[in-house]
């Protein structure tokens, strides 16, 4: 039972990695990162059900708060980059390249 939940969490995390690797649209990359956070949350909650211990729920709450903070900041950065470059391509955003 719990094994299936953990397997689903692994599959979702790997799909998130594939999204980050294969896409160049900055929105899709950002949402793929959110997908990986969600997969980690599912793992926390599943193991918490296995051990009948609610620490995993609290950790999932913390991850959601961090994801909300990350969303606010990342979207502000995306707006700024779009204003400066007029583009959504992650390859254009290589400002720190030496």
């Amino acid at each position: 039972m719990i094994n299936n939940y953990l397997a689903l969490s692994i599959v979702l995390f790997c799909l998130g990695i594939l999204g980050v690797v294969s896409r160049r649209n900055v929105f899709v990359v950002f949402m793929a990162i959110e997908l990986m956070l969600n997969a980690a949350n599912l793992g926390f909650v599943a193991v918490s059900r296995l051990h009948v211990n609610m620490d995993g729920h609290v950790l999932a709450l913390m991850v959601m708060a961090v994801a909300a903070a990350e969303a606010a900041l990342a979207l502000a950065v995306i707006i700024l980059l779009h204003k400066h470059k007029g583009n959504l391509d992650t390859n254009i955003f290589s400002l720190l390249k030496g």
Binding site: L12, G16, F27, M31
Partner: peptide
Amino acid sequence: AVLGALGLILFKHP
């Protein structure tokens, strides 16, 4: 869930 994630990484428009 898996279909939604596949749609996220395969659809062209965000």
